[in-house]
Simulated scan of single mutants.
Amino acid sequence: MSKTIFKSEENKLTVTRIFDANLTLVWSAWTVPELLDQWWAPKPWKSETSYMNFVENGHRIYAMVGPKGERHIARTDYKTINPQETFSGEDSFCESDGTINTSMPIAKFKAEFVANSNSTVVILNSEYQSKEHLEQTLAMGMKEGLSMAFENLDEYIKQQFKLRSELKLNNNPRVTTYLNFPGNTEEAFNFYKSVFKTEFSGKGMQRFGDIPAEQGHPPVAEEIKKMILHVELPTLGGHVLMATDAPKEMGFTLNRGNNMHICLEPESREETQRLFDALSNDGNITMPLEDMFFGAYFGECSDKYGINWMFNFKNI
C-alpha cells in the first residue's frame, strides 16, 4: 500500500506522505539539493539542480531532464522557513536565466513536517491559479515524482539495521564504535584492517548496491551503489568498529565531531532507558529513544560534554 495520499479540491492539492525515518533525515531530503535530485522527478526523467539557496527569500533553479535530453527549467522560491517544521513558497516554470514563465502553472505551497514515534509525516499543501492549472501539473507527472520521494532513504535505513541485526544474534551487552564517512569507508576500513590484522565480520563489506530490489522501491542511485552500507571489524579485546558511508546524496552533512558515536547495546530495555536518560541529561537528544520499524529500541544523544552516544537494544 502506498504511503502517499493525494487529495485534490478545485485548484488545491494536499499530499500526505508517511516516511519511515526520523525528522532530521526527512527534512534533509527536501532541503539538500543533492538529495532532491535523487527523487524530484518521475523516472525516466531526472532532476538537475543548478542553483539552490535554502533560506527565506532564497530560491532553487533546476531542470527536469527527459530521456531524450528534453529540458524543462523550473524554480522554487522560498518565503518562510521554520527549521524541521515548515517551509513555504512558490513553485513555477522559468527560463534558463530564472525569469518565471507566467503562462505555465504556478503553485503557492506550504510543506509541514510532523515527527511520529518511528516515522515522519510530510503534508504538502499547494494552491494553483485555477483548477485547469492543477490538472495540467498532475498530467505532467507530479504524482509520480512525489510518490518516489524518500524511498532510497527508507530502504537504506531498513537494510542497514537488518545487516546489523544479522551480525548480532543475541542481546549480550556490548559497546562498539560507530563511524560515518562521506564516501570513503572502504578505504578507511581496509586501513584499519591492516593495522589490527583482523577480518571483517559476516559477509564483509555490504554495499548500497547489494540492497535487494523490492516492489515500490526505486533502484539505488548509480553514484552510491559502490559505497559501503555497513561493515564491522573486530579490533582489540572484543571491541568492534562499525561504519557506513553517509553521503551528501542521501541527505547527510558530516563534520568532524558528528561522524562518530559510542554505540551501547545493553542487555535489557530498562537498562537502555536508564543509560539514555542519564547520558542525555543536560545534553542534546538528537533522536528520542523509541521502538523503530527496523526492530530495535533505538535512540541517539550527545551528553553535556559534547560526546555522541547511540543506543540500540534489539527486540528479539
Rank of each mutant, 00 (worst) to 15 (best):
residue 155 E to W: 02
residue 145 G to S: 11
residue 216 G to V: 12
residue 281 N to G: 12
residue 303 D to I: 05
residue 110 K to G: 08
residue 60 R to K: 10
residue 291 D to T: 11
residue 26 V to W: 08
residue 222 E to H: 14
residue 48 E to Q: 13
residue 242 M to H: 05
residue 24 T to Q: 03
residue 77 D to T: 09
residue 186 E to G: 10
residue 167 L to I: 06
residue 58 G to D: 13
residue 9 E to F: 05
residue 242 M to A: 05
residue 182 P to W: 12
residue 196 F to C: 11
residue 45 W to A: 11
residue 110 K to A: 09
residue 2 S to P: 03
residue 105 P to K: 12
residue 267 E to L: 05
residue 156 Y to G: 01
residue 307 I to G: 02
residue 4 T to D: 05
residue 127 E to W: 00
residue 28 S to L: 14
residue 275 L to S: 10
residue 47 S to M: 13
residue 20 D to S: 12
residue 47 S to N: 15
residue 97 D to H: 01
residue 86 T to Q: 11
residue 6 F to N: 00
residue 240 V to P: 01
residue 93 F to G: 00
residue 288 P to K: 07
residue 152 N to Q: 05
residue 121 V to K: 15
residue 183 G to Y: 00
residue 69 G to V: 14
residue 13 L to P: 08
residue 216 G to Y: 06
residue 8 S to T: 06
residue 292 M to H: 03
residue 189 F to P: 00
residue 283 G to P: 03
residue 113 F to D: 04
residue 128 Y to H: 07
residue 112 E to F: 04
residue 175 V to N: 09
residue 140 M to G: 03
residue 107 A to S: 10
residue 129 Q to D: 13
residue 251 G to Y: 03
residue 84 Q to K: 14
residue 128 Y to I: 02
residue 95 E to Y: 13
residue 38 Q to S: 07
residue 66 G to V: 10
residue 244 T to N: 08
residue 121 V to E: 14
residue 71 R to E: 15
residue 113 F to P: 00
residue 147 S to I: 02
residue 47 S to C: 15
residue 94 C to M: 14
residue 116 N to E: 15
residue 164 R to N: 08
residue 213 A to G: 02
residue 248 K to N: 04
residue 128 Y to P: 00
residue 166 E to V: 01
residue 75 R to I: 11
residue 75 R to H: 08
residue 297 Y to S: 07
residue 303 D to R: 03
residue 54 F to D: 08
residue 117 S to Y: 14
residue 111 A to Q: 07
residue 150 F to L: 13
residue 271 E to A: 12
residue 48 E to T: 08
residue 105 P to C: 15
residue 218 P to A: 15
residue 226 K to D: 06
residue 244 T to M: 06
residue 131 K to W: 02
residue 160 Q to Y: 01
residue 182 P to N: 15
residue 286 T to V: 04
residue 137 T to W: 04
residue 68 K to L: 09
residue 283 G to N: 12
residue 51 Y to V: 04
residue 52 M to N: 08
residue 231 V to G: 00
residue 54 F to T: 01
residue 310 M to V: 06
residue 231 V to I: 01
residue 243 A to W: 00
residue 140 M to A: 07
